[in-house]
Design a protein around this nucleic acid. Structure first.
Lengths: 119, 119
DNA sequence: GTAAGTACTATCCTAAAGTATAGTAGTATA
DNA sequence: TATACTACTATACTTTAGGATAGTACTTAC
């Protein structure tokens, strides 16, 4: 009963291929997801910390995108009942493992620049 | 004169990191880039062929996105003066090497589904 | 001469994404 | 009493992405 791997399966069919990659793209989509994940890759952060970390982001967008990332299982939100209340955001295991995806994206980007503009 | 690698450099600084990943994200951005690249990963294609390959794409979007991909050095456009004129689109070396990026994206997506929804 | 094929472009419109600005509720400090 | 901090939310607006529809210019087949 040998089964074909999900990767091999996805690469066989153009439609499966697109759906599978879109799963990942949707998690990273939008102007602010990457800066937020990037900030959290350096450790857990509080709302105001991130607001200061990420230039020009508005609290509306930060709040909205964090909710999105939480719903997608990329970050966890923990409330501490200090006074005033403090909230910490942290990457999940999946969120942290994005690191390796981002690595190959960076490598491809660097190589592509070399190909396209000659070093 | 040992130099720090561009990857290590990008990962050191949150802003460099975001810029580097965005290089790659911008190439894949939008609803139709992935289906188009996916179609071309199976070999060179003509305009009408791709229109038929990709469900619900309009010629306007196909034309627009192909121009984008060409400008970004992902595809090449070759005109043959047959009658009627025929045009072939093909992935560049960079375009083809996206394959490995998409692989890790598919793998992450599959693993993330398992983490998030338990298999 | 009319239909159908090639490879598109132009125009207009809607929907989604993102921005600007202000406000909430609670506490603590000067 | 006023200001500032926490973590947001609400409303309204603008900008961008994408969709619908039609048209161009050329050629071949019927």
């Amino acid at each position: 009963m040998s089964r074909i791997s999900p990767l091999a399966q996805a690469k066989k069919c153009p439609m499966d291929f697109v759906l599978a990659v879109n799963d990942t793209m949707n998690v990273l989509n939008g102007k602010w997801k990457l800066p937020i994940i990037g900030s959290l890759l350096f450790g857990k952060k509080r709302f105001k910390e991130m607001e200061r970390d990420i230039p020009r982001i508005t609290p509306r967008m930060l709040s909205k995108e964090l909710k999105d990332l939480e719903a997608n299982g990329i970050v966890t939100r923990t409330v501490y009942d200090t006074t005033p209340v403090s909230v910490e955001y942290e990457l999940t295991r999946s969120g942290n493992s994005l690191n390796s995806v981002l690595d190959v994206m960076i490598e491809w980007g660097i190589q592509h620049r070399k190909n396209a503009y000659g070093k």
